[in-house]
């Protein structure tokens, strides 16, 4: 259809028109700064990450272990009963090969986002992280992986204290 139209109506805009101030617009940057209180559940999780431990919490009425830990069970609305240290190994539930960075740059080697169901947590309870030391071709749902931690003296109590998860070499 459009190939039949020789000339489109209207006035075309060029980048130079903006530079020369012919097109009026207003640019602004937001100064929005926040300092979120992490609270009891997530605060405990971050403190444990600093120690190189993945922490979950357990609900006795649902018999469910969740990670990250929380103070309330989202299924039965009862307070969680205890905190449980978990292994830093797990299984890929789902993943994606991301060829565009968060700020829209195209990349050749993809970043690999994944939800990893952590060993010791209930089924479908995992943490959101990235995969590394792996050929994107080899990543698959059900793949066994293990956390790669920052050195202890560089950990600061943040989700980035784990650099990524890498495949566990079987056998």
């Amino acid at each position: 259809m459009t190939s039949k139209i020789k000339v489109f109506p209207g006035t075309p805009l060029r980048e130079v028109d903006f530079k020369e101030g012919k097109i009026l617009y207003r640019h602004d940057e937001m100064n929005g700064q926040y300092a979120w209180d992490t609270g009891i559940g997530i605060g405990s999780y971050l403190a444990a990450l600093k120690e190189g431990v993945l922490l979950g919490s357990y609900c006795r009425s649902c018999r469910r272990t969740v990670v990250p830990p929380r103070t309330v069970c989202e299924w039965c609305f009862r307070p969680m009963n205890s905190y449980i240290p978990l292994k830093d190994t797990g299984t890929v539930n789902t993943f994606s090969l991301c060829y565009i960075t968060w700020d829209l740059k195209r990349i050749k080697e993809p970043e690999i986002s994944a939800v990893i169901e952590i060993d010791g947590a209930s089924p479908l309870h995992g943490i959101m992280h990235k995969l590394g030391e792996v050929d994107p071709e080899d990543v698959h749902i059900g793949m066994r992986v293990q956390a790669v931690w920052k050195p202890a003296d560089e950990r600061e109590g943040a989700i980035t204290d784990i650099l990524y998860f890498k495949p566990i070499k079987e056998g």
Binding site: G39, G41, T71
Partner: peptide, 12 residues
């Protein structure tokens, strides 16, 4: 201020 709890825990 309520530094000991997250907004989720406050609301709960």
């Amino acid at each position: 201020s309520t530094p000991e709890v997250s907004y989720k825990e406050l609301t709960y």
